[in-house]
Design a protein around this nucleic acid. Structure first.
Lengths: 171, 171
DNA sequence: TATTGTTATACTCTATAACTATA
DNA sequence: TATAGTTATAGAGTATAACAATA
C-alpha cells in the first residue's frame, strides 16, 4: 500500500519520504505519506505555528487574532454596524455578539444605537481601545517579523500574494 | 488613525486599501485596514477556503481533513500505536480517542492490543478502510487541483515550500 | 415582510487532570 | 515510578433557529 502512496507522489513530482525529512516534519520516525505534499496540510501546520506565535507575541494582553481583527476593522470604519463587521469577519451575526460583549466588557469598544434606525448598533473604539490597539499593532508587527525571519521580504510578499490567489471566488 | 495605518503600510511596502480591492477581499466596502498585509490573516482565509473546498470534494463520504490525515498515516505505518499517531497529528493522546472511536465505529480502523506490551493498541486499516482511503485520495487529488487552478505547478510547489519554511523550530 | 441584534442551543476541536491497567 | 489509553470536563469558536424591536 505504501508503494501506492509513493506511486501517487511520483506522478505528482513530489516525494513524501524525502519531504518528511526536509520539511519541518517531526523527527519521530512516523511516515506522513502524501500529507506533506498537500496544500491543506501545510496550511494547517503553518496556521498553527502562526497562531501560537501570535499568542506569544500578545502575551498578557490576551487578545486573540479574531478580536485583534475586529479592533482593526472598527478603527478603520468607526460607527459601522454589527452586521457589517460580521460580514467583514466572515462570521454569523449571532457569533459576533459574545465577542463584542467581551470587547465591551473590557472597555475597548462601544455599541451606540443609531439615531436614524434604532435597530442598528454603531461600533466605536473607546479611548482605551484605541490606545491598546496601538500597542497591539506594534506587537503584531514584531510577530510578523519574527514569523518571516526565514523568508526574505520578497519571499514574504510573494507568499502573501500566492495565498490571496487561492481563494475560490465565492469566498 | 487610518492615516497611521496607511503610514505603517507605506513603511512596509504594501498598501492595504489597494490590497483590499485586489485581494479576494469582500466587496462590501468595509476597510480591512492592515489585515490583508498580515500573513496570519491571509493564512486564516486561505485555510477557510481550503477546508470548505475539501468538504465539498469529499461530500457524502463525511471525512474531515483531520480524519483523512489519520487514515493516511495509519496506512503508511500499519500497527503504530495511538500515542505515536497523536504525536504525528500534533494532538494530545486524549484527543485522539474519540476520533479513533469514530473511525472504528465506521469500520475503517482496527485497534489491536499488542502482545508484547498489553498497554499498547496497534492501529490498522480494515479492508473497507483501505478501500475507502483509495477513493478519498482520488477526491483529494482533484480537490488539490481545483484549489490551485489559479496557480501554475511551479507556483504551487513554491507556495508549499514557503509555507513549510515558516514553522518555528519548536513545532 | 424584511432586517438587526439577541438568545438558546448544539456541534467540533482541542486541552488538562485524574483514573486504570499495565510495565 | 512511568507509560498507554481512557474518561470527565471545560473552553474556544462556530453555526442554526427562533424571538423582539423596528423598519
Amino acid at each position: 500500500m505504501s508503494n501506492k502512496v509513493a506511486a501517487d507522489s511520483r506522478r505528482r513530482g513530489t516525494r513524501s519520504a524525502a519531504n518528511a525529512s526536509v520539511n519541518g516534519s517531526p523527527g519521530h520516525g512516523i511516515d506522513l505519506g502524501l500529507l506533506p505534499s498537500l496544500l491543506g496540510y501545510q496550511l494547517r501546520l503553518a496556521q498553527r505555528a502562526v497562531f501560537s506565535d501570535f499568542a506569544d507575541a500578545l502575551g498578557e494582553l490576551e487578545v486573540s487574532p479574531g478580536l485583534f481583527g475586529m479592533l482593526v476593522v472598527i478603527e478603520a470604519n468607526p460607527g459601522l454596524k454589527q452586521s457589517q463587521l460580521a460580514k467583514a469577519a466572515h462570521l454569523d451575526r449571532s457569533t459576533l455578539v459574545p465577542a463584542l460583549d467581551k470587547l465591551e466588557a473590557r472597555g475597548l469598544v462601544m455599541r451606540r444605537a443609531s439615531e436614524h434606525d434604532r435597530r442598528v448598533n454603531g461600533l466605536w473604539l473607546t479611548e482605551p481601545g484605541t490606545a491598546l490597539l496601538k500597542t497591539l499593532k506594534q506587537r503584531v508587527a514584531r510577530h510578523e517579523q519574527r514569523l518571516a525571519h526565514r523568508l526574505s521580504r520578497s519571499e514574504r510578499n510573494q507568499l502573501i500574494a500566492l495565498l490571496a490567489r487561492i481563494f475560490p471566488d465565492r469566498r
